[in-house]
Amino acid sequence: MPLARAGSGVAHAELRIAVVAVAGLVVILALGLPSFVPAPFVVIAGLYGAQLTVDDVPLDVAAPAFAAGLVVGVELAYWSLDLRDRVKGAPGDELRRLAYVAALGVLALVVSAVLLALVDAISARGLGVDVLGAVAAACALLAVVLFARGRGPTED
């Protein structure tokens, strides 16, 4: 998406970075390093953010599609890592997983579209962005804290 929008000079640079990110993802998947899976997607998101800044568009309507693509890409990467597991799954496991990834993509699309509409309704600039960012950051932080509290061993 960023490459499609960029000018020829910027596109070359972004293309190289994107190729490096994809190559990095391939290496990560080949070596089976789940902790490093987010790294290439962070790079791609960074390209998207940089392109938005350069273009300076008021509000990108393709953001939900980008968000859904990012979620599906991350899930597919984790799926490919799970396939390295030697334990054979039950029949139909792959189809269920495919349906799960597709549902996650649709969910991401819907949530992002709703948020985009909300942001558009409030304002594309000013306090709205800061409030939305702060609330989202607080939500993410809360989720991490809640998970960390329940992460230790528990007895029956």
């Binding site: 998101a45 998207y48 953010g49 940089a50 938005l52 800044t53 509000l59 990108d60 953001a63 939900p64 980008f66 968000a67 859904a68 990012l70 979620v71 991350v74 996650l104 969910l107 991401a108 949530v111 992002s112 948020l115 985009l116 942001v119 594309a124 600039r125 709205g128 962005v129 939305l132 960012g133 989202a136 939500c139 993410a140 989720a143």
Partner: peptide
């Protein structure tokens, strides 16, 4: 970057 699109992209993950 003051771009809400990135926050929107973060929302499904969160």
């Amino acid at each position: 970057l003051r771009r809400p699109e990135l926050a929107i992209a973060a929302a499904p993950f969160a």
